[in-house]
């Protein structure tokens, strides 16, 4: 298939950046989106041009490193990561617009690569437990109700790719933070720091200049891991509970 790509090119943090159009011929429908970008980069390198910088690592949909906005949708038209998106999701002759995640908290480093250090700092603020857990415990040593275990696990599947922020009209990180708060808050090991955790993590995400949540739901709709929107209500419940108890 033949496609036209409109790609965001930006030399560095301080460069203004612009959209550049490239034409690609003989793209296989079985290529992943990133393989298609690899082909573009090989072509650009042969022509003596700078290849398009983009983040990627496992290419198996589990690491959360890749992620670009394709035709206005984070990770493109399928509910998966960009690496697991294939060119068969597009049509011959399509013009595809590729942009980096747009958020003040995620500054563009180069082309499609953004700095997601803000997520690491939110985790640092409270997304951990300090109980020494030792080696893997015996099964059923800590009985956890099945619904709680399921809820914790659903939230724990977050890979921190940042699609929720990219898709949010307010560039809010609430779904990410809520996933961590719900994941740790449903399990006994997460209880000692539970009340303080939510306060510290919310303070940190505000500090990083993410916007506020208006419950529009685009985050959960594009999440490649299907983090449920109700984790945000869980975060709100925990935060209001902490504040009413004077924690934080």
């Amino acid at each position: 298939m033949n496609i036209t790509l409109r790609v965001w090119r930006q030399k560095g943090r301080d460069d203004e950046g612009r959209m550049v159009t490239y034409k690609l011929t003989d793209v296989s429908a079985d290529m992943s989106f990133l393989e298609m970008l690899d082909v573009l980069n090989e072509k650009l390198t042969l022509e003596g041009e700078e290849p398009v910088a983009f983040d990627h690592d496992c290419r198996e949909g589990i690491c959360g490193a890749c992620g670009v906005v394709i035709d206005g949708e984070a990770h493109g038209p399928e509910r998966t990561t960009t690496c697991q998106l294939h060119m068969r999701s597009f049509n011959d002759g399509d013009t595809i617009t590729v942009e980096p995640w747009r958020a003040s908290a995620f500054p563009v480093v180069k082309d499609l690569v953004v700095d997601r250090g803000a997520f690491d700092r939110i985790i640092q603020a409270g997304g951990y437990i300090s109980a020494p857990t030792g080696t893997a415990p015996d099964a059923h040593a800590n009985p956890i109700p099945k619904p709680d275990a399921d809820r914790a696990f659903d939230a724990a599947t977050c890979i921190g790719c940042g699609a929720c922020v990219a898709a949010c009209p307010n560039a809010s990180s609430m779904l990410f933070t809520a996933a961590k708060v719900t994941h740790l808050g449903m399990l006994p090991q997460g209880q000692p720091e539970r009340a303080a955790r939510v306060v510290q993590m919310v303070n940190q995400q505000d500090e990083e200049d993410f916007g506020g949540c208006t419950n529009i739901g685009e985050c959960a709709a594009v999440c490649p891991k299907g983090i449920p929107l109700d984790t945000i209500s869980q975060l709100n419940t925990d935060l209001l509970g902490s504040l009413s108890k004077g924690v934080g």
């Binding site: 965001w8 906005v69 942009e99």
Partner: peptide
């Protein structure tokens, strides 16, 4: 929180 807008 989003000073640079999306093209699409």
């Amino acid at each position: 929180a989003r000073t640079q807008r999306y093209v699409v």
